[in-house]
Design a protein around this nucleic acid. Structure first.
Lengths: 124, 124
DNA sequence: CAAATATTTAACATAATGGTTAATTAACCA
DNA sequence: TGGTTAATTAACCATTATGTTAAATATTTG
């Protein structure tokens, strides 16, 4: 809860917090974690249920969930022996917003595919 | 050039390539590399010029540039002893697009800040 | 209480990351 | 040719990341 609250403060006082972005982008750099996030967008899930489609061991998934939680990307809720994980969309969205802000400053130019095709046709 | 071309094929044939996303998100997880990308959005720059605002050694910057280049995020151009680096916006944008697609599926709910504030006011 | 279930922690192996300094390569110039 | 400048590579080091299996914890249930 302290961490979660800290994230809010950071997010809403400092627009782009380096550490938050480091963590969120690092979270996203792993395909297992990306898939977990996608599946959580569908609603809360237990560890077992999240682990089901993957070939790796349960402790491996548990570690991925810890990475996700530490970054503030997910939170969990206890119910009996189960932990229900939920995604925190606005933490993930801080990465999206950084990228959207960045792309405002892209140089005015054809995209690289167009450049590539143009070059090829001119050179013939 | 081969790498650059491969990136095009991947990007325009397979919508979300896991390895591409792994690499691009990994690139973005480091604040030095994020800053390099931001500065390159302003136009091409040499290694020296890119290294100038940072405290770390030139080889460290050189390594970051190699990571960026391997991911397809930048390319370089030789001119005398200089290497001019350019950003490839569409490779970076593949990360943005993944995040934008994801957020279409966010659950319909108040964002966490609102939830947090609502809870606090109810509990009093 | 004992067994079963869900999850995490411990201990470990291995590879990748991100930095350093020193050496090397490559191009230019006097 | 020899010196200077720009950049990369080599060799090294400490730390982090990502997986494993085995053990521990915690909760429910018979």
């Amino acid at each position: 809860m302290t961490v979660k609250c800290t994230r809010f403060i950071i997010k809403h006082m400092v627009k782009y917090n380096d550490e938050l972005l480091n963590d969120v982008f690092h979270v996203l750099s792993d395909p297992t974690r990306r898939e977990i996030i996608r599946r959580l967008a569908d609603g809360e899930k237990t560890v077992m249920s999240l682990a089901e489609p993957f070939e790796m061991s349960l402790p491996a998934i548990s570690k991925h969930l810890k990475v996700l939680e530490t970054a503030g990307v997910v939170s969990k809720r206890k119910e009996g022996t189960f932990r229900y994980y939920n995604v925190n969309p606005d933490i993930v969205d801080s990465a999206k917003e950084w990228l959207m802000d960045l792309s405002k400053f892209w140089p005015e130019q054809l995209n690289n595919l167009e450049q590539f095709l143009n070059q090829n046709s001119k050179d013939r």
